[in-house]
Simulated assay, not measured.
Amino acid sequence: MLKQIRPALVILVVLTVVTGLIYPLAMTGIAGVMMPRQAEGSLVVDESGKVLGSDLIGQVFTKEIYFHGRPSATTAPDPKDATKTVPAPYNAANSGGSNYGPTNKALIDRVKDDTIKLQAENPNAPVPQDLVTTSGSGLDPDITPEAALFQVPRVAKARKISEDEVRALVTGLVQGRTLGLIGEPRVNVLALNMALDKLPKS
């Protein structure tokens, strides 16, 4: 019996060391050498070296002078009651959507309310879908070019600059499909807001 168990135990130990230790360390080392910025989380830093966020994870922008990202349905434990959760937009520790179905009343009411607010912001254009719906991860850092362009009148008015100037900024930051095939055209909200802050003050 020991004759049969020994090879199994040896294989278990070898595979555990190879796949659980050597391989992850090798991949981490290779990634750190070949793509150091991505391996560190694709962090975005300003001129002073202060970390402003990540290219990969959205964040909340509520001021009128900034473009707003997609709604996020991520949550965090309620500090008052650990058995419950509270909304925590873009919580990277709890990636996920709301799991509400299309007939869920809470979802319908939220989307309806958000649509009414956004329509008042720009009554001359239809509200883009991604400004009222959450992504599957809840961490999406990008919006569609249509969603960015929809917000141009509000941002231009809040910053007291021309819509054409803001629209040109949006157009210049549109990223195409990866390799020309994968995904959809998009605009990174953090990059767009950083570029806005660099515009000359009026």
Rank of each mutant, 00 (worst) to 15 (best):
A76M: 03
Y66M: 01
Q151H: 03
L179W: 11
A106S: 14
T83V: 04
P141H: 07
R110S: 14
T144W: 02
A73M: 06
K117D: 15
N104W: 12
D142F: 00
Y90P: 04
G176A: 03
T144S: 15
D109M: 08
N104C: 10
A148Y: 03
A168P: 07
I143P: 12
K160I: 04
A148E: 13
Y66V: 03
N124P: 11
G69A: 03
S98E: 09
P87M: 07
A82S: 08
A156C: 00
S72R: 00
R70I: 01
D140F: 11
D81P: 05
A88L: 05
A147L: 01
S72A: 04
P126A: 12
A120S: 07
T171F: 14
E64Q: 12
T83S: 15
K80S: 14
D140W: 05
Y90L: 07
P89H: 01
Y100K: 13
V166W: 03
L149T: 09
D78K: 00
E64M: 11
A82G: 04
N122A: 14
D109I: 01
E163C: 08
S162N: 08
A76T: 04
N122Y: 14
T134A: 15
V166S: 06
K160E: 10
T115A: 01
A82Y: 08
V166R: 03
P102G: 07
D142N: 08
S162H: 06
L107R: 05
S72C: 01
F67V: 12
K105Y: 14
G138S: 11
I161L: 02
G183T: 06
L179E: 09
R110T: 15
E184C: 08
D81T: 00
I161C: 07
T83A: 13
A92S: 15
Y100A: 15
D114P: 13
R167W: 09
L118M: 08
S137R: 10
L179N: 12
A125W: 08
R186C: 05
V127Y: 02
A158Q: 06
K157R: 00
G97T: 09
E64I: 11
T83Q: 09
D78Q: 05
A76I: 00
S162F: 02
L118V: 00
G138H: 06
E121T: 10
A158D: 03
L118K: 00
Q151W: 01
I108P: 09
G101C: 07
Y66E: 05
I65R: 12
P185N: 01
E184D: 14
G69N: 12
K157P: 06
K160W: 00
E165P: 04
E163R: 05
A125D: 12
L107T: 03
S162L: 05
K80Y: 11
T133I: 08
R186N: 07
Q151V: 02
Q175D: 14
G136E: 10
T75C: 13
E121Q: 12
S135N: 06
Q119D: 14
S137K: 02
I116N: 14
G172T: 08
F150Q: 03
P128L: 08
I65F: 10
D81R: 00
A125L: 06
L149V: 11
R154D: 04
P71H: 04
F67P: 15
T103V: 07
S137V: 01
R167K: 15
K80D: 15
R154I: 02
